[in-house]
Design a protein around this nucleic acid. Structure first.
Lengths: 339, 339
DNA sequence: TTGAAAGCGATACCAC
DNA sequence: GTGGTATCGCTTTCAA
């Protein structure tokens, strides 16, 4: 016999059934919204349940239905990721939506290196009904999970688009185009960019946006103005210094994220130049630093809560047997002092 | 009959038992590390389990034992909290420790306003074996959960210490003392402080540390140098401006967190003064901004991963029937350019 | 429309 | 040491 749960004593269907004068089967029907129960008996069941403070036992339900009512949220276990305020907000977006549908989010912080990492096993183990990945981990691992029938949603565009992975992402390309166009159309003649990590899709897309802006305005891109960064402050600063040394007449810089934009500004100041008077700067993300830094950083805001919410909704949709199309969320230019 | 689990087909004890030529009871014993099983049979069971790729069904176990193997991690649903990089790291610390013990972290993002908020019900509902709170929400709600027998650990010192809530926290008082002493002993004659929210224990403790430093160095505290902030950038900036207007000879400022320290520095610059030459600044937290800002922010580093890990360990200890003492984690002064 | 009853998979008591 | 089996609470077929 099991040790009595250390917490509360729980009401069961049996007690509700007794109190309402019906069978357990009927209790189940009523509590699960089955129409074909006489409304008076249904009423009695509901009252009894309320009076007894009934809470459904998820373990029992899971055992019976094969559905756990839980979704794993997998996040990469690296300081760089965890330290990024971005993910907290995404988590909130996911959690809120799932909560409404009475689904719990199980957090798994871990690298997902190989197909038989502990996490991968957890995920196939049936402890959860699906998994949302907060960064594109090793893509083939995710892929193999999908093949095994696990409902999966990835936040961020997968590299291999042919893979039938369901994903949601910010419109990085259009956002970057917005940013670059803003610089170009507000008088900048020579706009450089510090890209993100080009092995990541977000990095590529934001660079493409830079190109697209030039193209649409009929301006030729000078490859010499493109510096390949890695999302980090220090690196961006170094690259900017180099850029400015080679092209002293640069008057605008689009950094592929806010952290790098701060590095860019630091470099500009170090060269004794002013933002935005000498060089205008636009970032991407609109994180806290963008707001608190002086001068305030003009940047591209993404709907981060929305990203999480969209991922959760895609998951719900998969669980209902559908195959949701990828969702790409719009961005918005936030004007502050830097450009 | 249940709908077959959408994911993988699962091996059960029955199959292992058949393959190993033993009973299900024996399979259970072996897989749960019960010694008194002949080692050869045990071996057979283990081999069979591996060969069949057995994964334990948590729902079944939970139903049988009354233990879910899940801990709720409750975090306040406010932008200010979610945007704080701090919590992501704490989460990682918690998750890692629990994971090792095969316990899942269920994330609940929500305010926990009242004793019958949905979350409170979830928590008493037996869906989890315990709860870790990432901010002291309404303390009486937490208290009532404890009274109902739910194992609870709070990250952050509760206001009502007499309450028997298990908690872990950073040594805010000593950290603040360290910060203030650094300013005082490196030549500053007039050190002001921008406090955090004084209705929060962390706010109070950091202010106390400021006092303690003066006391231990035999310097009298000038109440006029204490400005009551609210952790935010803007507010800190405003307060600093006011402080400097009234006391132009302030040459050091301890801000109770890094975000405010940035506000302080912004204000100092706005007044045309230099950091640290005219005014030295020390923050608290050592977040990303402290590192990327120029000049680099001298600050107090807390062991954030450690905080999460400590909370998780306290939880494990409670689950084993112990009553862990509060844990207070040490801090460290990180020297950069600002002081 | 309703109830009886057979599972779901693991555990733990009881008897051998 | 080991096996048989009742049990956890809910769902769902099957009959009535």
């Amino acid at each position: 016999m099991p040790v009595t749960s250390p917490t509360t004593f729980r009401t069961t269907y049996a007690e509700i059934a007794a109190k309402a004068g019906v069978s357990r089967a009927t209790v189940s029907r009523v509590l699960n919204g089955d129409d074909r129960v006489h409304s008076d008996r249904a009423q009695a069941v509901i009252e009894a349940a309320n009076k007894l403070g009934y809470r459904t036992n998820r373990a029992a339900r899971a055992l019976s239905t094969g559905r756990t009512g839980q979704i794993a949220v997998v996040i990469d276990d690296s300081p760089a990721v965890l330290t990024d305020p971005f993910w907290g907000v995404v988590l909130a977006g996911i959690s809120r939506v799932l909560m409404v549908h009475d689904i719990h989010s199980v957090l798994m912080v871990s690298p997902l290196e190989s197909e038989d990492s502990p996490i991968a096993h957890y995920l196939e183990g049936g402890d959860v009904d699906g998994a949302i990945f907060l960064t594109v981990h090793q893509e083939h691992v995710v892929q193999s999970l999908v093949k095994k029938g696990l409902p999966v949603v990835v936040i961020g565009t997968p590299i291999d688009l042919k893979s039938e992975i369901v994903y949601v992402d910010t419109d990085n390309r259009l956002g970057a185009e917005l940013a670059t166009k803003h610089l170009l159309s507000s008088g900048c003649k020579k706009v450089a960019t510090i890209t993100g990590d080009i092995s990541a899709v977000a990095g590529i897309d934001r660079l493409e946006g830079y190109h697209a802006a030039h193209l649409s305005l009929g301006i030729e891109v000078n490859e010499d103005l493109i510096a390949h960064g890695d999302w980090s402050f220090e690196n961006a600063k170094t690259l900017t210094l180099r850029l400015l040394a080679r092209n002293p007449d640069i008057d605008g810089i689009f950094a592929a994220n806010d952290t790098m934009a701060l590095g860019v500004m630091a470099a500009i100041h170090e060269r004794g130049r002013m933002v935005p008077d000498h060089v205008a700067v636009v970032g991407f993300d609109d994180n806290l630093m963008a707001q608190t830094h002086r001068p305030g950083l003009t940047t591209i805001r993404q709907d981060i809560v929305g990203l999480g919410a969209a991922a959760a909704e895609s998951m719900l949709s998969i669980l209902q047997g559908e195959t949701p199309a990828p969702k790409i969320l719009p961005t918005e230019l936030i004007l502050r002092e830097s450009a």
